[in-house]
Design a protein around this nucleic acid. Structure first.
Lengths: 187, 187
DNA sequence: AAAAAATCTTAACCTAGGTTAAGATTAATT
DNA sequence: AATTAATCTTAACCTAGGTTAAGATTTTTT
């Protein structure tokens, strides 16, 4: 994580030490939950190994993937985290995974004492926002085929690791229809 | 704008003065553009009067509304603004409008010298991100009727002021189909 | 106040994508 | 290695939402 942050901005020894001291490590088996509906999201989670997803389950029991995450990605329900409100989301591991966690009070401590790290997290959110915005545009304007091709382009690593069921759920179609789309792309 | 910011956090005289000194005022007629495809978005825009929208135009010429804004809302293509990259978006006025603008270098100056205002803009983005996330979830999981009802609930003021064409474009259906939805809701 | 432009509705017909279900393939678990 | 469970595909049929076009209504502009 430290190395990842250092790519965006160099940290001095003190900043590095403080960050390290506030981090806890967690190992997750395949399918194990990091967050479940009704929980309050208490941590920012940084994935160091594996692959995870964040999703919602509707009244019919269908899962809808909001986000994936792999090595060097953050995965957190920011809404629940900041408002201390129970989440409607789940986060679980698609593969055996390892995450680093920072608690809210520690994060706020770091924000107030280390402006450089504060800036790092701001840029993080700005980028996440820009991506979400692009995704909304796709959602309201593109066909399933276009959405699928965009997914392959944006997440080439992920698309080999995760099942089509997960991809279908992310772009908002059924796995059966995604299968049709893929066939028509092949010929 | 100052009053709006003050609701979220009290400003002292100096902060208020600096903000005021960096702001420029702009009046827009109905349908006038604040940003067009190909421009680099150079300002954060705060709406003091009127109603605006930000949208994309696809190859077929169809408009897709990404965001509306009314009094006390910010409307800006953050992606283009931060990367100095030409935008693919348009911002124009749905009603005669008035906006306050802050240039990028001034915003950065304020960020670095006034942590309180810096925090205000961070919260702004965090909230915008959370809303976008909720919208993606709706997009991939809900029917047109559900999306329409959510829009009415989330933006009760806007839904009386703007045309159904605009609402349809925001939720990602044709105006004709939105008309069907409304009829079936009325009975 | 009149003319022009934009909006809203309706209806007939079309299509992208959903549903159900079954079989084939692959991956996970014992 | 065998069993179980999950994934992927296919196909027949269904439905939410799109398309085209025309008329009625409302809003803007002159």
């Amino acid at each position: 994580m430290i190395n990842h942050i250092k790519k965006l901005l160099p940290l001095d020894k003190l900043e590095e030490e403080v960050l390290l001291s506030k981090i806890t490590f967690k190992k997750l088996k395949r399918r194990q939950f990091l967050l479940q509906e009704g929980d309050v999201c208490r941590h920012y989670n940084f994935i160091v190994e594996g692959c995870m997803r964040m999703y919602m389950v509707d009244e019919k029991g269908t899962e809808h993937n909001l986000q994936f995450g792999e090595k060097n990605w953050w995965i957190t329900d920011i809404g629940s985290f900041h408002s201390d409100v129970p989440t409607q989301l789940f986060i679980d591991a698609l593969e055996p995974s390892e995450v680093l966690q920072i608690k809210k009070e520690d994060l706020i401590f770091i924000y107030t004492h280390f402006p450089k790290i504060d800036r790092y997290f701001r840029v993080l959110i700005e980028n996440a926002f820009i991506k979400m915005q692009a995704r909304v545009l796709q959602n309201i304007s593109a066909t399933a085929e276009e959405k699928y091709l965009t997914f392959l382009k944006d997440y080439p690593n992920l698309s080999n690791r995760i099942s089509q069921i997960q991809i279908a759920s992310y772009i908002g179609v059924t796995p059966e229809f995604l299968s049709k789309v893929r066939r028509s792309l092949m010929k």
